[in-house]
């Protein structure tokens, strides 16, 4: 059988990290958020991080419900401000290992200012943007990453606004690790998260995800599997291949993989090194 030939993953104990009594989760059938969480938990395990040190902070939206399901120190805050709550926590207690769960609306619209300044400070945290180009929790309104022309409940005639490129935004704002993954390429996403968790500074990982219930239904992508196929075949191209492929094969596609990685002083370390050292001299 074909399946038998595939390299199967080592059995993995997800229960170790989940609050099992809080399941089932609220995500709709076909939503990719659970897949993203799975890759994250495997990456956390790869890095052997302590649950007592892990702190997951989120804002509002479907993706922001992630903290409720993981057995860490967890904070579900208000719309768009997860970065700021997390900045306070991290500065007050630098031993915390911060992970932000946010969405394209939470991070790019209402939280845009905080996103930019968090990247600029290069404070040590992993920001995961579950990017499905729609406001799912409120029933399918267009977001700052909705493609032009797409239908949403507030863009019935087609969206007229150009979308943000989250990764370009993160890089421009000063994030020192920027990557893009998808809910389809799960092993690649696990590797990306593992790298991101090992990075010192602000790491942004945009995960291209799908919302079949709202985005798909309104945009003639009728099923979850169809949307996943679309991510695989039409949506993205690996950063390793992008330069080798002819232009017509990469045009309009988002590039997957680690897009930007530089070493720069991290905020909390700089605080101790520059401010505390001078203040206590």
């Amino acid at each position: 059988m074909a399946v038998a030939k595939q390299k199967l993953s080592v059995p993995f104990d997800y229960d170790k990290y989940l609050r099992k009594d809080k399941l089932p989760h609220i995500w709709c059938p076909g939503c990719g958020h659970g897949i993203v969480l799975k890759s994250l938990l495997r990456a956390i395990d790869n890095k052997e991080l302590s649950k007592n040190d892990l702190c997951m902070v989120s804002g509002i939206g479907c993706s922001s419900r992630t903290p409720g399901y993981v057995d860490f120190n967890t904070l579900h805050t208000i719309h768009g401000r997860a970065f700021s709550f997390a900045t306070g926590l991290k500065l007050a207690k630098p031993s915390l290992k911060m992970i932000i769960a946010t969405g394209d609306g939470d991070a790019m619209a209402i939280g845009g200012n905080h996103f930019i300044h968090t990247c600029r400070r290069n404070i040590d945290m992993l920001i995961i943007v579950y990017s499905n180009a729609i406001y799912g929790m409120t029933g399918g309104q267009f977001s700052p990453t909705t493609p032009i022309g797409s239908i949403a409940t507030t863009s019935r005639y087609g969206n007229v606004e150009p979308p943000f490129d989250i990764c370009e935004m993160a890089k421009a704002a000063g994030a020192t690790f920027v990557a893009r993954g998808t809910a389809y390429h799960t092993q690649e996403l696990e590797r990306t998260f593992t790298e991101a968790l090992g990075h010192k500074g602000t790491a942004v990982v945009e995960v291209i995800d799908s919302c079949p219930i709202y985005f798909g239904r309104m945009n003639k992508q009728r099923g979850a599997s169809e949307m996943m196929e679309n991510i695989e075949k039409n949506g993205t191209v690996s950063v390793k291949q992008v330069d080798k492929l002819p232009a017509e094969k990469t045009e309009g596609k988002l590039v997957r993989g680690i897009l930007h990685r530089v070493e720069k002083p991290e905020y909390c370390e700089q605080y101790d090194k520059l401010i505390v050292a001078k203040a206590t001299k």
Partner: peptide
């Protein structure tokens, strides 16, 4: 720890974060 945030909303949020860290 002192931090000047990017706006008033972030300041309030970070203040709550600092308190949850025990300060």
């Amino acid at each position: 720890k002192f931090i000047q945030m990017e706006d008033e909303i972030a300041s309030m949020a970070a203040t709550i974060g600092g308190s949850l860290a025990g300060l």
